[in-house]
Simulated scan of single mutants.
Amino acid sequence: MPSPRPRRLPRSASARPPGPVAHDVRWAGERRSALGVASLLLAALFTMDAGLGELDVARVLLWTGLACLVFVILLPPRVCVRPGLLSVRRVFRADSVRTDSLVSVQWSDGVAQRVVLRDAQGGRVEIDPAVLVRNPPMWRRLDADSRTSITHGTLRHGATALRELADRIDRETAHTVFKVSGLD
């Protein structure tokens, strides 16, 4: 009897650094909300057209396409951090950056706040800082890896942005602790 051939891992799986993975804890709920809003819109449009007697194949396709578009717009990116790697998956693309070889970190403060991370290999990732604020394990992993980048001298621009982000996360954490303990 021939021995079974060993299973080869997909290339992307074997390239991943080992270690625990930290995911956004609210992503699944936000995905359900996006799906719920799109479904309610679709049901309302179908009900309206059916009530008016104008529901046909063309309108079904139109309303289904509109509901899919609303879902795609509302679906947040999926962010995960593992030792040395931060990945962001959107509907049509995925980006990743080596967090242990960061070159720059930029903070865009405004209506839509974003943190832009770039690594030595040319990777670029843009994330909402609120994702890091509400996920302490993600922030701890990113903070430890960014300190590695500073130690190795690859991080040339953005140490100030990282400090600002750390200060914001510390403020939010302290506020949450005070709120939970009733001292707020």
Rank of each mutant, 00 (worst) to 15 (best):
residue 39 S to Q: 09
residue 122 G to L: 07
residue 58 A to N: 11
residue 78 R to G: 08
residue 90 R to C: 11
residue 104 S to L: 03
residue 129 P to M: 06
residue 175 H to Q: 11
residue 176 T to M: 12
residue 3 S to F: 11
residue 121 Q to R: 11
residue 32 R to A: 15
residue 6 P to A: 14
residue 155 L to C: 00
residue 27 W to A: 02
residue 65 G to Y: 04
residue 161 A to S: 06
residue 167 D to S: 08
residue 30 E to V: 14
residue 92 F to T: 13
residue 115 V to E: 01
residue 102 L to F: 07
residue 35 L to Q: 03
residue 118 R to V: 14
residue 182 G to T: 08
residue 110 G to W: 08
residue 69 L to R: 15
residue 52 L to N: 05
residue 142 L to R: 09
residue 25 V to D: 03
residue 169 I to C: 02
residue 43 A to W: 07
residue 90 R to Q: 15
residue 125 V to D: 13
residue 173 T to F: 00
residue 15 A to W: 02
residue 159 A to S: 02
residue 87 S to T: 11
residue 155 L to S: 00
residue 2 P to H: 14
residue 111 V to T: 14
residue 34 A to F: 00
residue 100 D to E: 09
residue 113 Q to N: 15
residue 26 R to W: 07
residue 22 A to R: 03
residue 98 R to T: 05
residue 29 G to M: 04
residue 86 L to G: 02
residue 82 R to H: 10
residue 27 W to R: 04
residue 183 L to V: 10
residue 129 P to K: 05
residue 83 P to S: 04
residue 156 R to E: 05
residue 64 T to S: 08
residue 125 V to E: 07
residue 163 R to M: 12
residue 25 V to A: 13
residue 98 R to F: 07
residue 47 T to F: 05
residue 180 V to W: 07
residue 14 S to I: 11
residue 1 M to N: 12
residue 96 S to P: 09
residue 154 T to I: 04
residue 39 S to D: 06
residue 125 V to P: 09
residue 15 A to K: 10
residue 82 R to Y: 01
residue 12 S to A: 09
residue 131 V to P: 01
residue 60 V to K: 09
residue 50 A to E: 09
residue 123 G to C: 06
residue 58 A to P: 12
residue 108 S to N: 10
residue 179 K to I: 02
residue 11 R to M: 09
residue 34 A to Y: 01
residue 23 H to E: 10
residue 12 S to Y: 13
residue 85 L to I: 03
residue 16 R to P: 13
residue 39 S to L: 14
residue 69 L to C: 04
residue 79 V to E: 03
residue 143 D to M: 08
residue 38 A to H: 02
residue 135 N to W: 00
residue 165 L to W: 01
residue 182 G to Y: 06
